[in-house]
């Protein structure tokens, strides 16, 4: 009897693993918060960019590039084994379908067409970035 029990337990475990996700959503740790650290091997100094990839295939983008406050964008993304592409809630697609790699706490997105690459590091997005009371909602950069 014991042998049978173990057999079924193993069978069940194998089934669970097989059902853990479809072939289009592999179990890789892109979910979480990321901060842009460099672009084409140059430290990113011209602004500040944070991204949150949620497990429900949505994302939040917080960027401060030429503005006094963080802008907030959101949308959905699709992930394959090597590519990530996305679309904003206003219907605009991302600049390209990025190739991506994750190594330890580093996420690299590459535009294959231009070879531009962007390196993000895992982080905790500061609360004042997310809850910015004077946030600009998807506005173009105000030149004061």
């Amino acid at each position: 009897m014991k042998t049978i029990k173990y057999f079924f337990a193993t069978l069940m475990l194998l089934c669970a693993m097989a059902c853990g996700g479809g072939s289009d959503t592999p179990q890789i740790p892109i979910n979480g918060d990321w901060q842009l650290k460099s672009m084409n091997n140059m430290p990113f100094v011209a602004g500040d960019v944070y991204i949150t990839f949620n497990s429900n295939a949505t994302f939040e983008l917080y960027q401060k590039i030429g503005t006094s406050d963080f802008e907030h964008f959101s949308g959905t993304y699709q992930l394959s084994a090597t590519k990530i592409l996305g679309k904003y809630t206003d219907g605009t697609s991302w600049l390209c379908d990025y190739s991506y790699t994750i190594h330890n706490d580093t996420l690299t997105l590459t535009d294959d067409e231009t070879s531009d690459n962007y390196v993000y590091e895992s982080c905790e997005i500061p609360e004042d970035v997310i809850s910015n009371e004077t946030r600009l909602q998807n506005q173009s950069k105000p030149i004061l």
């Binding site: 011209a46 602004g47 983008l61 531009d116």
Partner: peptide
């Protein structure tokens, strides 16, 4: 002044 040089930019100014 910050400088960002890219081959393309989004129409909505978003980064990705």
């Amino acid at each position: 002044v910050g400088l960002i040089v890219r081959h393309k930019f989004n129409s909505n100014n978003a980064w990705l």
